[in-house]
Design a protein around this nucleic acid. Sequence first.
DNA 1: CCCCTGTCCTGCCTGC
DNA 2: TGCAGGCAGGACAGGG
Length: 306
Amino acid sequence: MPELPEVEVVRRGLERWVSGRTVTDTEVLHPRAVRRHLAGAADFADRLRGVTLGPAYRRGKYLWLPLGNGTSLLGHLGMSGQLLVQPQNVPDEAHLRIRVRFTDTAAPAAGEAGTSAAGEAGGTELRFVDQRTFGGLSVHDCVPDGPDAAVGLPLPLAHIAPDPLEKAFDEDVFHEALRRRRTTIKRALLDQSLISGVGNIYADEALWRSKLHYDRPTAAMTRPRTAELIAHIREVMGDALAAGGTSFDSLYVNVNGESGYFDRSLDVYGREGEPCRRCGTLIRRRPWMNRSSYFCPRCQRPPRVS
DNA sequence: CCCCTGTCCTGCCTGC
DNA sequence: TGCAGGCAGGACAGGG
């Protein structure tokens, strides 16, 4: 599943291969992939026809491209989504859900399939592929004013907090919001209105690095503890980005950033029964919110009242 | 208003 | 061999 660093790789790929191109037509092959576009698949295609896509932006795991008319194209990869830039003659993927064609995507001359592309990205189309259809694309009005308006932030993202890699992320604001909540630290890390872009895996990784148990009450967080936790989240994300951030570089590669490297750099997630890399104690797994939490029982002491 | 649970979806893996 | 069931996960609707 794409974590924030992989989504950032996708953003870079979109910016390089898709931004600046003008849409001719859009094909929705599975209605669920546009379910967040409430007006339906036909309207979705109508709103994209003829527009030129702006720069690619990201907040947390959301991606968007302004359309220059007060609306933006919004995307989320969900659990299994990919955005691919493919030559037209490549056969459809098994789980192709949406296809976007561009004005520079020349149809191959009859009987002459596979001719060379006119421009660098010419001859390619954008494909949204998603096995489990948790992700999707949609078009929305942008927020009307403020700094978010300048980047065409889609209205549905107005309540999403900045992610820790953004300049706009304010550690003091986050800490105060954390202290106001009556909940536990891992729940808070997964709450998109407090901090975005942290999924189950990176939450466990950052908590392990910070020696914090997932069930610690947020009310017990001190300013230095919060600072340390944020620093560790940035580290985990930064390491992954450094490792996988170059895989978008070649054309025709999927911009999804799947590199396989990401999994290997994990310290606790998925390591039940294996020794903690700090103290050697065996890592444990606990069922948690219909998911799992991995932790070191020695480095990450549970709170007194759980 | 705040917090928490259930739900969406499909392929892979395990165990009977 | 085949099938049932568990698991994975982000985001959000709706319940308490």
